[in-house]
Amino acid sequence: MLQKIYDWIDDRIDITPIWRDIADHEVPEHVNPAHHFSAFVYCFGGLTFFVVVIQILSGMFLTMYYVPDIENAWQSVYYLQTEVAHAQIVRGMHHWGASVVIVMLLLHTLRVFFQGAYKKPRELNWMVGVLIFFVMLGLGFTGYLLPWDNKAYFATQVGLEIAEQVPFIGEALKTLLAGDATIVGAQTLTRFFAIHVFFLPGALFALLAIHFILIRRQGISGPL
């Protein structure tokens, strides 16, 4: 039955080559921990992606309860923390995932750096990776404000004041981020929410896609 459905679709849109390309490649010996245990360092990239998946899933579910509004943001987070079954775990996944993803990203970056794997012909993929790192830091910064607790509010205030110190464009930059020249409030929260939930994830997906396509094109770097 499943086979028939698959054949019916494959007849029409020819999907076999798409997944065959992913499935039918050989993994060389030097990245396989079964042969050299030290090859576990090659896991960090995959684990980073795994945590990203956790972040996307838990984030999607959290927005079922969360409201980006200064009156209700904290109330809704408090409500889901205290009243909704398992919601504390979901928020915990998102909260700790944010830290773990940075750790994994750092380890992955260091692996690539110390192995010199970013050298010709992989310069572009390295730069895409660093951009992913920046996007992640942006996600961390914007996500921090969303629960609208004291920690969030004051840390964001400091962050925005740092942005204000930038010469020439500082004040414009702060206003752009905060939505208001002086107040860190309702407009800041909605802006940060939009950036955190739509703009940066959009950029992240695009960069991840490029990252993975380049890996498939170039293959993994050879042994040292």
Partner: peptide, 15 residues
């Protein structure tokens, strides 16, 4: 493992 908590949270109003 990934979905059990999120799904339980999502269906909480039903239960």
């Amino acid at each position: 493992g990934l979905l059990i908590s999120p799904v339980r949270m999502a269906i909480d109003p039903v239960l």
